[in-house]
Design a protein around this nucleic acid. Structure first.
Lengths: 141, 141
DNA sequence: CTTGACTCTATACCAAGTATAGAGTTTACA
DNA sequence: TGTAAACTCTATACTTGGTATAGAGTCAAG
């Protein structure tokens, strides 16, 4: 199978497939006489696995780790689970960051309605007041 | 004030300050005879404003927009508020994506404990089963 | 035989910085 | 006054996960 067909079957772009090869997520395939990449069904499965992992927002490094472990069916899956645990924890952390941020933004936004002028804008005043409180210039004047 | 002092006062790195200048968030300052950047207190305030916006996870483009509007105190703050609304919405969207993702990951992770072998790993089986269901290779055999 | 579709490599680009090399400048101390 | 450390300058490369070109070669249909 040539790269275009593989792209169609996986829903990944041709560039992305070549990118994964450069990143060593996907083994370099055989080449035809005219130097075209020629893929097996194994490559298709591997790519779908990678795609699924990416849809879980795993980084390429994380996927790399899991793929490496996966090649030895007798090895322990401790590494895979540790990677997942770390990943779950990262996401939990990011969610709580974003929740806090959302709260701040909403309260900030509530300080202004749309028909004010810039000099009266509640949002800008809120930012400015934080800036002023951190700005040593005031104290040096 | 030279760039190093400005970096100390803002808590930004020297490179970041120069980066913001390249991105036109910060006006190019005057230069000394030896070509060193020489900053006013205005620049300090501007940088603290930018830093605060970045801590709100606003993109440089969003900050640019707000800064531009901000220069005219008589203009309407509609743009600022529209930017904030869009930003709040983006974050809301991202949070719900991450929540869904977290749920998937946790349920996946629950399918395996640490002392299994790779071939028995519940996490990998869950990924594989999704892959298999999307893989046309099976049907072509 | 030529046109269009496909593929190849190499390179540049995006965000939001960070890190470096190599050169010039200023400051502190003896 | 000398010199060494600390500072600054520009320019360039690197990060992540791709995307988008240019310019060349290959393949299939009419």
């Amino acid at each position: 199978m040539k790269i275009g067909q593989l792209a169609d079957k996986t829903g990944l772009s041709i560039q992305t497939i070549r990118f994964y090869e450069r990143k060593a997520l996907l083994a370099a395939p055989q080449r035809t006489q005219s130097n075209y990449r020629s893929y097996s069904d194994e490559a298709l499965k591997q790519l779908l696995f990678i795609k699924q992992c990416r849809s879980l927002d795993m980084t390429i490094e994380e996927i790399s780790l899991v793929l490496e472990t996966r090649t030895n069916p007798e090895s322990s899956c401790e590494n895979v689970n540790a990677t997942m645990d770390k990943h779950i924890d990262d996401i939990k952390h990011r969610i709580s960051e974003l929740n806090a941020l959302q709260k701040t933004l909403k309260s900030m936004r509530a300080a202004c309605n749309d028909d004010k002028k810039i000099k009266e804008c509640g949002v800008l005043h809120r930012i400015d007041s934080i800036v002023d409180s951190h700005c040593p210039a005031k104290r040096n004047d």
